[in-house]
Design a binder for these strands. Structure first.
Length: 565
RNA sequence: CGGGGCGUAGCGCAGUCUGGUUUAGCGCGCUUGCUUUGGGAGCAAGAGGUCACCGGUUCAAAUCCGGUCGCCCCGACCA
């Protein structure tokens, strides 16, 4: 491609919207442009990267026998009503009506469509198992998009769905898919960690995420370096620190004027936050409940939801608590609290002599002890891990990292085939529900994740498998323009993906643009060629230069593409 | 949805507090010409603006007041 004709615009300045490294670089390199909040256009350079990533995905999916399809993004509401997600998916599901007033959605995911399709086509165990996949645009009406292309409302996703005869068969499928995902991300040049994950609104029994490690990622994960346990923070289980065997003391009231937060109370009374009981009221469909946890640990609301077996959960407002319970927030506690469920974190039950609200303004209780002074309705794990917590398997101290979720594996079991009532006939002629799994990759988020892990001050450093072009030919002076042109046509004919920077600008501009857009190799035709008859190939990542005669360049490039990452 | 910020040329910004000194300015980019060309060149001449939108106050509004919309960041929520 001649650069003078290419629809590319690079910029020295970062547009105001750019915050994260990848977002800034994607805008400066002209890969994407924003059209509206969370909605992006891909320019030729950005699209080429997506196309190369898609090719890798297709190769690996085809490699494990998955078959590519294309499903509609506009889907009838009736299908979503059947699965129950018309109600449960919430505001994120974009709904609209057509001219005949029929209700539709823009698909945020495709379990309904694909399950319906397979159910209609396949009636016999003889045609199972089957895995279908597509690379297609999804729309989820996120509350807030962020990080450029990392969290958008419209995005490109690879989604695969497998239909099996048995759990065992689906397990095998899951493992194959997990292997393929590992290959895909490593070919894209990503350093990923596989973690146990929360299933979210997709549902199902078990899931794992591939997280691309990056400090600017929005997901947090914990890892154990000893036994290898790794999990998304949302899902993480952990071992709580051991407790000293303190003797139980006599409970008494103390005045604590104006100290509401755990921090204020612990400072006022000179105790550690872990010895203060954080008592929070939540509003649920089962009414108001109190969640109880030690003051140094945040509450994990999704765990709380599952302990309570409720679908929605919201921290109750100060006014509501005052009105219903008659207590000022900040002075509420479990002692003497009648008529409300108290859900206590496991850690609470092990402690002794806590500080807790006295359900009386400006007053707390000290030496509060579980069982003696209050009863928990339920005890469960409702906390997030914090620094210093140990691995649930081996007890070793856990470490914390951040990352970008790039892939997600779900073992669904029969959940969708049951809710949509699709079945096949097994070997003995019995009607059975399909055992399914679904598998996603955030395709349009991948370039951002790759850039987060592969860049320097000058710009992007594309791993060679997903680079938009392998090399850019740069004539540095007018006198080397003609030989560079000759080389360009020669390489193009040999099948190389090359850009030819035929623009009438200084060599510095060409070098800087080539670095910014991250092309792996710069093929420089300059003074060295005039003086020694040698072309230089400069490696983007390493910065090293290889010199060779003009007729060796084609072979040289081929070799470089094979060994460099 | 709660909190914070922003909206002036294609992009980045100044001007807004304290209304009039501006024909709304600067840098980058863009166009034309000449000179340049191994790491973001120089000179000269140009093009480009409903100051987000609607309404109000005023002799006078980018500037003050009210409303609306859009976008970004933190949180909540979520692949």
């Amino acid at each position: 491609m001649r650069l003078s004709q290419y629809f590319m615009s690079t910029s020295k300045q970062t547009p105001r919207e750019g915050q994260s490294v990848s977002h800034k670089l994607m805008l400066r390199a002209g890969l994407v442009r924003q059209l509206a909040a969370g909605i992006y256009s891909y320019l030729p350079l950005g699209y080429r990267v997506l196309a190369r990533i898609s090719t890798i995905i297709e190769e690996e999916m085809d490699g494990i026998g998955a078959q590519q399809v294309l499903l509609p993004s506009v889907q009838p509401a009736s299908l979503w009503k059947r699965s129950g997600r018309w109600e449960s998916y919430g505001e994120e599901l974009l709904r609209f009506r057509d001219r005949k007033k029929g209700e539709f959605v823009i698909g945020p995911t495709h379990e309904e469509v694909v399950t319906q399709l397979v159910g209609a086509e396949i009636n016999s165990y003889k045609r199972l198992p089957v895995t279908l996949y597509q690379i297609q645009t999804k729309f989820r009406d996120e509350l807030r998009s962020r990080g450029g292309v990392i969290r958008t409302r419209e995005f490109l996703m690879k989604d695969a769905y497998s239909f099996c005869r048995s759990e065992e068969e689906e397990n095998g499928n899951y493992q194959q898919m997990r292997g393929a995902y590992g290959k895909i991300f490593s070919r894209c040049g990503l350093d990923c960690k596989v973690v146990e994950a929360d299933t979210g609104p997709i549902g199902g029994k078990r899931s794992e995420e591939f997280i691309a490690i990056s400090p600017s990622g929005e997901d947090k994960l914990i890892e154990c370096s000893t036994c290898g346990y790794a999990a998304n923070l949302e899902r993480a289980v952990f071992k709580i620190e051991k407790e000293g065997n303190n003797s139980v003391k006599e409970m008494r009231q103390v005045p604590t004027p104006g100290t509401r937060s755990v921090e204020e109370v612990s400072r006022f009374l000179g105790s550690h936050p872990r010895d203060v009981l954080k008592s929070l009221f939540y509003q649920t469909e089962k009414g108001l409940i109190m969640a109880l946890i030690r003051g140094n640990r945040p509450i994990n609301e999704s765990k709380l939801k599952s302990v309570l077996k409720v679908g929605t959960l919201q921290l109750a407002s100060h006014d509501l608590v005052k009105e219903k319970v008659g207590v000022e927030v900040g002075f509420a506690g479990p002692v003497g609290l009648d008529g409300y469920q108290v859900i206590a974190d496991g850690g609470v039950m092990r402690g002794r002599n806590f500080v807790a609200g006295a359900n009386k303004k400006d007053t707390h209780l000290v030496n509060v002890n579980p069982d003696r002074d209050f009863q928990a309705t339920k005890v469960g794990d409702i906390g997030y891990p914090i620094m210093g917590d140990g691995c649930a398997n081996c007890g070793h101290v856990l470490s914390f990292r951040r990352g970008i979720e790039v892939g997600h594996l779900f073992y669904l079991g029969e959940s969708y085939s049951r809710s949509l009532d699709v079945t096949f006939l097994d070997e003995v002629g019995k009607e059975r529900y399909f055992v399914t799994g679904c598998y996603g990759i955030g395709v349009s988020r991948l370039p951002a994740a790759v850039i987060e892990q592969n860049h320097d001050e000058a710009g992007i450093i594309w791993p060679k498998e997903i680079a938009p072009f392998h090399a850019v030919i740069i004539p540095t002076t007018e006198r080397t323009f003609a030989p560079s042109r000759e080389l360009y046509y020669h390489l193009k004919e040999a099948g190389a993906q090359v850009l030819w920077d035929d623009r009438n600008v200084s060599a510095g501009v060409k070098f800087n643009d080539a670095d910014l857009i991250g092309i792996p190799f710069k093929i420089i035709v300059g003074d060295t060629f005039l003086e020694e008859g040698k072309i230089e190939i400069k490696l983007r990542r390493e910065g090293t230069i290889k010199k060779m005669t003009k007729n060796k360049v084609s072979q040289g490039l081929k070799e470089l593409l094979e060994d460099a990452r």
